[in-house]
Design a protein around this nucleic acid. Structure first.
Lengths: 342, 342
DNA sequence: TTGAAAGCGCTACCAA
DNA sequence: TTGGTAGCGCTTTCAA
């Protein structure tokens, strides 16, 4: 028994005070029709006087809804700390959930297996009415698990053929713009440091870069496998800059790697952007804390969260919502991209 | 009606399959006594075969528990993005909640008023069995609201006289160590940039610095009001370094400000730490991404979350747990603290 | 040891 | 328009 939980007024208390049946209270307070405005007023007053707030527990059981959606963040705890994406994403999610009386149930999982397990647990225990599918892998087992359970889900930047509604923000246009800008500045040897393998967004960014390179008449061969971490960016710099003819520009699949790359490049005695241009992807605040500031493809995780939640609630309501495209990511030059030195 | 939610097996299904009453199923699966091992086995088997997972909704209503705790993060969305504290804190919370079958309900509030409102809503709707009280203000209205509702709560680094159980990490010892170290390095003009006013942790850090300065025989007069943001740190640098006899060392109430201060100091042509030593508080990962790396008082938000959740669950179980002190924060020198130039 | 039944606080259906 | 009532899926008490 929970310690000290105060006795709350229930729907029965309100009904008694207003001298009506509980079904009328339910109808009145939920703005259903079939209640005269006189009794509706009386019920409202009684509810106010008692400080009545409907119990979400009773509602959940009766309405067969949890009034809650789930987000499982698959991150090593230590990495999560440095990753600002989810703060903004969750902020956006909240923007939609709160006015709709929904809450967010957040879980942290260390790896893919426990992420799947958490997702399944949330669904099986009926803790949530739907979930976000984030950071999707190329062969993501969560999809089948969700499908099998018939749990509403919304994908965030999912791959083609994704079976649930999705919200997308295109980044490829900005990557094309980036590569053309680099080419226009005289860059020919442009490298790409990828994200962790097996992630859809890693593939998406790699594909965008590859396409853009080809479109610019450049050969997309300078590819290094990264891991989305700062240390991974440092390692990439050590490797790429030690080559006999190193790149003059590098596009990293996220900002954290770009920051690590830039830092190590500077430590190795290079100037950014004079000796090497470094560009990231995400547009995190930390990019403004270094010198030069980091040029990056800025995304909008908050809009992704806001629209994703909107889709999810519609889906839960039994609608069949269309996918949502939020305005494409944009290249924001802050100084770490410059012309090739003569 | 939620779209497509698959029919789940209920306790009735299990009882039928096992040929027993639902009360026996409940007792068996919850490891209560009074069930023969034979029927217990039979029930377990039936449950397995049906893939039975108890509905948290039914349990919540009957047990008068939500099996969920709440955390309201009071942050501007944009600030949240840059703040790594909560990622680690939530990770720690999860570490405790998950094995206990509890979930975390996360809310984001933009200001104190809506933070209070959210907290109250969570409690009144009985969505959670308890909440964390974080970033407490010197005159925090949430405390009275929680007390009034009798909702279990746990304070994170609360002030003296706090009415709920609490988990604390002392930072003052490390601040004393810091100030002595600065004094030993020849610093006399040591400044402090505070956090946002009206926050308990702002006061705690200021008091620790003031005490430490006095203990070192120095006058604690160089105090500048900050706001915990990077930009605030930059402003502090502009102000302090423009003085006729600027400080030779500065202790900022958090790392973000220290990073802003350091960056601006360098932009103004000073060398860190040769011309000015800069030290922060928190020990965030970003401190390793700048040069010199940021010397800071390292805290352990993950342990705070882990132990805070442990306290909260005990409280919910009706225990009267003692406060928890986790090992004190420690000064970690990474290079932004150095001797006064001759 | 087992089973029957009450009740948790709602929603929704059906009569009156 | 109203009221009565049957669930929703559990836990818990009380008899058998």
């Amino acid at each position: 028994m929970p310690a000290g939980e105060r006795a709350h007024a229930t729907i029965v208390d309100v009904a008694q005070r207003a001298g009506v049946a509980i079904s009328s209270v339910s109808a009145a307070l939920n703005d259903r029709k079939g209640v005269s405005s006189a009794t509706r007023d009386r019920i409202r007053r009684a509810a106010d006087e008692l400080g009545y707030v409907p119990s979400i527990r009773g509602r959940a059981l009766s309405a067969k809804r949890a009034f809650s959606v789930g987000l499982v963040v698959e991150r090593d705890f230590t990495v999560l700390e440095a990753d600002p994406f989810f703060g903004a994403f969750i902020g956006g999610v909240e923007e939609t959930l709160e006015p709709n009386g929904y809450a967010l149930s957040l879980q942290i999982a260390g790896d893919a297996a426990s992420s799947l397990e958490r997702q399944v647990k949330l669904a099986d225990a009926r803790r949530v009415d739907g979930v976000f599918l984030n950071e999707i892998r190329t062969n993501d087992r969560r999809i089948a698990a969700l499908l099998e359970r018939g749990l509403p889900a919304v994908g965030i930047n999912p791959p083609a053929g994704f079976p649930f509604p999705a919200v997308r923000q295109d980044g490829s246009a900005a990557v094309h713009e980036l590569v053309s800008a680099m080419a226009a500045l005289g860059h020919r040897r442009i490298a790409h440091v990828t994200g962790r393998s097996a992630y859809v967004h890693t593939e998406q960014r790699l594909a965008a870069w590859t396409d853009a390179m080809s479109a610019a008449g450049l050969s997309p061969e300078l590819v290094l496998a990264g891991d989305f971490t700062y240390a991974g960016g440092e390692r990439a710099a050590d490797q790429l800059l030690a080559e006999s003819s190193p790149p003059t520009a590098v596009f990293c699949a996220n900002d954290l790697m770009a920051l690590g790359f830039m830092s190590r490049a500077i430590e190795r005695g290079l100037r950014v952007p004079d000796d090497i241009s470094v560009v990231g992807f995400d547009g995190i605040a930390v990019g403004d804390y270094v010198r030069p500031r980091l040029t990056s493809v800025h995304t909008d995780p908050r809009a992704l969260g806001r629209e994703g939640a909107r889709l999810l609630l519609a889906l839960i309501d039994g609608d069949d919502p269309d996918d949502v495209d939020i305005p494409p990511a944009s290249l924001v030059d802050k100084g770490s991209l410059g012309p090739v030195r003569a």
